[in-house]
Amino acid sequence: MEYLIHLAILFSIYAILGISLNLVVGYTGLLSITHAAFYGIGAYATAILLTQSGVGFLLSVILGIILAVLASFLIGAVLSKFDGDYYALGSFGFSVIVFSVFLNWQSLTRGPLGILGISKPELFGIDFSSNFAFLILSLLFLIAIYFVSKFIVNSSFGRVLKAIREDEKAIQVFGYNTLYFKLAVFVMSAAMAAVAGSLFASYITFIDTSTFTLMESIFILTIIILGGLANLHGSILGALFLILLPEILRFVGFPTDIAVQMRQVVYGLILILLMLYRPQGLIGEYKL
């Protein structure tokens, strides 16, 4: 039972990451491979604040969001000038740069050694240190982010995003400055990823750089492509599927280090097979 709760918590964290990335990749058609960077910024903000100052969890989440907004604003300002594969490549580059910062700014992040002993959250006097309580908390965040995202994609703003995806030139002719829209959705998506990062840091109580690599960005991308682009339910479905998949692999009984690599093989194959046979994913509404 305890283990199921653990999986459910991981699921809600990855569902948040999937939903937020889907805003950029699915709805706006911009292939971003740098989501783990903002996930990491949120995680480090919470980890550092909770271990080194008396600041509470909620404040650390807010600070993580602010930092992710600042970082994504700078990164997005460059990226928004591009589209298609150049966008993908540029975001690839930023993912490496942010990772270098995590790894090398050792006085702050302790690099590969990681940060230990991050405390479990306490909000409004309620203690969330038991796993069940934490699950409730992370599900609440997931629900909040789901509804915010739903509001975004159904608003007139969301319709402009889809128009950018279908034909950026055409919507520019109507007088929309698409650069602002691309930047805005990128920043919103990064802010949500930072929330997922804060939850992760506070749940696992230990973080190091190995969580926020390029591979993590690829994993989140696999979630949303598998579930389906431009469909918020798809991202939830994708996260559920890919969190449970390693558990099925576990029954095969590989040694741990091989099991980790086996998972990567499976993720890679999923991406290839989807591209070959079902590029819209399980319930997607948009094909790359």
């Binding site: 298609g84 690599q261 990567q264 093989v265 890679g268 991406l271």
Partner: peptide, 27 residues
């Protein structure tokens, strides 16, 4: 298929092949 589909497929091939090498020869 669009370039993006090909790019994502190659990303998948990269992930899978790199992990296979790590399984065969350790990381």
């Amino acid at each position: 298929a669009s370039n993006m589909v090909l790019l994502v497929a190659s990303l998948g091939a990269f992930t899978a092949l790199q992990a296979i090498i790590a399984i065969l020869f350790t990381s």
